[in-house]
Design a protein around this nucleic acid. Structure first.
Lengths: 341, 341
DNA sequence: TTGTATGCGTTATCAC
DNA sequence: GTGATAACGCATACAA
């Protein structure tokens, strides 16, 4: 069917080993032979057989993009899917295929990570998951497969070290809050998903608190609303939390989608946004620019996050530019000011 | 590292081939030996080495989910990502991993299908793409790799035959329109993405036309609005197409997201929905139930689509229940009546 | 019903 | 620099 290095060897009149070396850019091969062999390979549309390559050298050309099933909730997926899109584009550019899956089998709850490890299906793990077990991290480490975690901050209780890239949620919380303060807001509410949720929200909340207090405001738990992450919640807030909203002149929604619902309800009720209440979201999903008024929000640098993570994992796989200690890089998000503030 | 069949053979005191047969449920192996071997395999957490298996029997355990890059537009992805989610769940249940990619390399424009074929990376192709080249279809066929196309209707100019599952967009267009007619609408507008778009919209439009005409209405191109597929468009319609909307009492948006924007604008302007204008969407993305008023829409049976396609591709791979002629099954969508009509 | 031998396509360890 | 050859883990044709 497909051409093999054997075919190339016969045409070029050299041995299998020479072809293999040439195609892998082994410096021991004379440039002339190399060129000749590569030319033939190209003319035959040659590609390495993935199975054979994997068997003999454990290179599969696949990266596992492992995520937390909670992301499959529609509202959360709005941002995450944009991030994943960037990741796949980057990996494709580097000739890697992406196997997308949740950390644990949805039905059996068994570890997909361990399964991939045992089958030797992937060259690296890109992790967007907050609660991978320490055992699984250790299994990856033991198999000497590179790990890069992104979006999520590594947990303290994980004994394995790996590179990580994420956005500074504390800074994000601060900049959203400071922006509202600078615009003169005196009573600022923040809305985030239910308690026990992701660590990222806790950090944003801390940022909110810190910024309030360093500006002479006093932080009150009464102005922290833990609610579902949905358009609907944002919409219903006006009626269901009428009392809570009394006097509020700024709201920091920790998710854009909640803000969208609120904007709609507010405008219907004739509440001037940003005149009476100023609204800031988080994530900067594409819809921010089509919603009316356009939503001011904290932009998560998904392009950079994806690029850094993908470059890193590929470097680790190719053992290039490896530093002795894993990096843990937090990118600063950016406040995008639009019409809702 | 991981256990191999050799390890199992040694423990069980049988040969490699017996282990291989037992684990592959070969009927020639005595049940007792089979049980024993499987027990040992389980205790060792054995999994077949993907590379070795692929080399020796061309079974990779991977399915390529190939989609059209235009789907990466945020608005379109809302529905498609839900579909993909179902697909991945189904494949996971059948112990298959999903390689998600566009049909053609985003940068080089080279065929990802041909690349996967040459590398022998996948056991089957799940295609959600309207414009795969005939050449590529032929290449898949030649490699004897199963194809199942879903969501998109197979093109007439494709010479290769394969199984396909999609929703009956003509029926969908009809049911949306009929619903509006039955509710007494006299002037029904339909909104769809720009001309030259996907075939699915053309079918929905035909359904709209057919239903109008069979109910004594006359079809007018003036009531067909080709516009961008966005929330923003829906929102701006009220002002930008004020004249067009004059007297309109029913709108069939061929995409939910457009309808969302319109609902917001309408309510802000005090236009009673469904009192003055009744609105129907298409797709039934999760947000339909949180938007106010809840959107009446045409539900695409994504769960069934995913299940049928995944079962079919796996059957084809395992050469089970194969019929001589490929099936081409169109599922009927379902009108979900909510508060916007 | 089970075992032996061979091959799948590639890389790696030796030689030369 | 280049060429044999073994090895990677598994499936299977052929024997027994």
């Amino acid at each position: 069917m497909s051409a093999t290095i054997k075919d190339i060897a016969e045409i070029a009149g050299v041995s299998l080993s020479t072809v293999s070396r040439a195609l892998n850019d082994n410096p021991k091969v004379k440039q002339a032979t190399k060129d000749e062999i590569k030319k033939i390979a190209k003319s035959l549309n040659f590609e390495f057989n993935a199975g054979a390559r994997s068997l003999s050298s454990r290179i599969s050309g696949n990266i596992a993009l492992v995520y937390d099933a909670f992301i499959d909730q529609f509202e959360v997926s709005l941002y995450i899917n944009q991030l994943f899109l960037e990741i796949r584009h980057n990996l494709e550019d580097m000739d890697m295929d992406t196997i997308l899956l949740t950390g644990y089998n949805q039905k059996t709850k068994e570890s997909n990570i361990k399964r991939l490890l045992r089958k030797q299906k992937v060259d690296g793990f890109l992790i967007v998951h907050d609660s991978i077990s320490n055992e699984d991290y250790k299994a990856i480490k033991k198999a000497e497969i590179p790990i890069v975690q992104l979006h999520m901050v590594p947990r303290k209780d994980v004994s394995v070290r790996f590179d990580a890239f994420y956005t500074d949620n504390f800074a994000g919380g601060r900049m959203a809050t400071r922006h509202l303060i600078e615009l003169g807001c005196k009573k600022i509410l923040t809305v985030l998903p239910f308690e026990g949720g992701n660590a990222e929200y806790k950090a944003r909340l801390l940022g909110y608190k810190h910024e309030l207090e360093s500006n002479g405001f006093k932080y009150s738990e009464k102005l922290v609303l833990h609610e579902e992450c949905s358009y609907s919640l944002g919409y219903r807030m006006l009626t269901e939390y009428k009392k809570l909203l009394d006097g509020v002149d700024g709201i920091f929604f920790q998710s854009d989608i909640q803000a969208f619902g609120f904007l709609t309800a507010a405008r219907e009720s004739g509440i001037d946004i940003p005149g009476k209440i100023k609204v800031v979201g988080y994530d900067d999903v594409p819809m921010c620019e089509s919603v009316i008024p356009n939503l001011t929000t904290v932009h998560q640098p998904r392009k950079e996050l994806a690029k850094l993570s993908c470059n890193k994992i590929v470097d680790l796989i190719n053992k290039k530019n490896i530093s002795s200690t894993p990096s843990c890089i937090s990118l600063t998000p950016e406040l995008v000011i639009r019409d809702s503030t």
